[in-house]
Design a protein around this nucleic acid. Structure first.
Lengths: 110, 110
DNA sequence: TTGCATACCTAAGATTCTTATGTATATTTG
DNA sequence: CAAATATACATAAGAATCTTAGGTATGCAA
């Protein structure tokens, strides 16, 4: 991405939102999904993603299960019931955040 | 603000944008302006703002001049010509950032 | 067989913030 | 009039969140 520091603090809500919308995803899939949505502009680094997934699991927001596909390990994550509550709250925060940005920067978007 | 970590990395473009729109502001004024725009939700901390203003000045993006009003010191900042170029670039990045957020979070905003 | 894609992981360091504290003056309130 | 609140600047220690750089391993294409 152009300015990585803009995305500091955003990764956690991104992961939670993607899991809410897609039900079940593995780490590598999340990086590809974000890249696809943003036309290759936003690249989540593995050094940020994997530790985050582990801490979300430790917090009881996500639960994981491993599978082997084509002899390669995949660790699928999904929201727990606690995670679904957190997700609703997180989404509200993000919505407000974006509205604030539109006001502060006087953005006129489609 | 609700979730301060969302705003990590955003303060710098906020300051630049406000100075572009208002021409000339002092630190305390910037904190009040952001609070006003966001209905009291977003509070810029002084511990983040003042060091940032100093480093923007050191980078040649801002220039400062002191004044005394009611026997109290004010340090006014404005964009340099370099700062104005940086501002254009920064604004483009923020616009793209917000569009990405809308896509990632599937936001339907006014 | 070399490189690229997939798929996981961790550790050191950088960046950006919060929290806490300090200085000083002006105004409001009990 | 004393105390609290608002204005206005500043710095330092520590927390949070990321990047960079490295590691392991499999499958496929050139």
């Amino acid at each position: 991405m152009n300015n990585p520091s803009l995305y500091k603090g955003i990764l956690r809500p991104i992961v939670i939102r993607l899991l809410e919308e897609n039900g079940r995803m593995y780490g590598f899939e999340i990086t590809q999904k974000v890249k696809a949505i943003t036309n290759g502009k936003v690249k989540i680094t593995e050094g940020a993603l994997y530790p985050l997934l582990h801490s979300l699991e430790a917090e009881g927001i996500l639960e994981a299960e491993q599978e082997f596909v084509d002899n390669r390990m995949r660790k699928y994550y999904k929201l727990t019931s606690k995670g679904k509550k957190v997700s609703k709250h997180s989404f509200g925060e993000i919505t407000e955040f974006v509205l604030h940005l539109q006001n502060i920067f006087n953005l006129k978007l489609a």
